[in-house]
């Protein structure tokens, strides 16, 4: 048989929940096209029940992930970057199709994304030293502060930057020891699905990251009002909806990350603002000299 006669094996793009790749509970899917309109794939369109399952998975994974040593989390995240590197060509092709950029630009975006992941991986065991410390107090106490992960973080990932933007919002969640349920870019979900495959084949425990592909406008309100989500990143939400989402998040006292009106330039250095956002300070006053 001539090589050209071979029937290609088309990939089914699914969700990533609790370490598994299920289809949407609703059975829905939607076509994903490139920026220029060419058909790329059918992606699962997640429903609110998928979102519920994702949060349950994130919650049950939180104990193990937040309880792992910072050193171990750093190693696991570094391993993710290693596997991303192995899939570099696939990421480049997907980013090129999704964002309609020139091959060289796509290459640079993917490299920056991998480097960003490594950068955040390096932060895991430095956070306590940089953001915590001993406090000088005027009394017979030894007072010190340690940062602890906030919990389950709901993320509406950037709509435009399909990989670098996603890595920039996701890696800080994991580096702090939080777990994530995130909704990928609606129109550009494929790099996110590949990233989920990378996470599944690294040493990241199932449930630490949960991917939903679908519409931020549909899933956002359920994510924002969910009582078991502790922090919220509304980067991917329509700016007009953000106030309302933040208001419904307030009912359960979620941390809502302050994000710029428009998507920022993800290539610039991120700083540690996002790490700080997903940490709670625990301060201990220990009596001494009594």
């Amino acid at each position: 048989m001539a090589r050209s006669d071979r029937v290609g094996v088309a990939k089914t793009y699914k969700l990533y929940i609790g370490g598994k790749f299920p289809r949407s509970e609703s059975g829905r899917s939607y076509p994903v096209t490139s920026e220029s309109g060419a058909f790329l794939a059918n992606a699962s369109q997640a429903s609110r029940k998928d979102l519920r399952d994702a949060v349950v998975a994130a919650r049950s994974a939180f104990g193990g992930w937040s309880g792992a040593t910072a050193y171990n989390r750093g190693q696991v995240l570094y391993r993710v970057a290693e596997v991303m590197e192995g899939r570099r060509d696939q990421f480049i092709a997907e980013v090129r199709d999704a964002e309609d950029v020139r091959p060289r630009t796509a290459e640079s975006l993917v490299d920056t994304a991998i480097d960003r992941w490594v950068w955040y991986a390096g932060w895991t065991d430095k956070l306590a030293a940089v953001l915590g410390g001993t406090n000088p107090v005027a009394g017979p106490y030894f007072s010190f502060t340690v940062p602890e992960p906030t919990g389950v973080v709901g993320v509406l990932a950037p709509q435009r930057s399909s990989l670098l933007g996603l890595v920039s919002v996701l890696a800080p969640v994991l580096a702090t020891g939080c777990t994530a349920a995130f909704v990928s870019s609606d129109a550009r979900p494929l790099p996110a699905i590949t990233l989920a495959e990378v996470l599944a084949t690294s040493d990241v425990p199932g449930g630490v990251v949960n991917l939903l592909t679908g519409q931020a406008a549909e899933l956002g309100p359920w994510l924002a009002s969910h009582a078991d989500v502790n922090a919220l990143d509304l980067t991917g939400a329509d700016p007009e909806h953000r106030t309302e989402l933040a208001r419904s998040a307030a009912d359960t006292v979620k941390r809502v990350l302050r994000v710029p009106e428009q998507e920022p330039d993800w290539t610039s250095s991120p700083g540690i603002g996002r790490l700080r956002a997903y940490l709670e300070d625990k301060t201990v006053w220990h009596p001494m000299g009594v």
Partner: peptide, 13 residues
Amino acid sequence: RAKQDGHYSGANY
């Protein structure tokens, strides 16, 4: 609770 409240609840509650 989810049925009554119109949003999902958590085990902490």
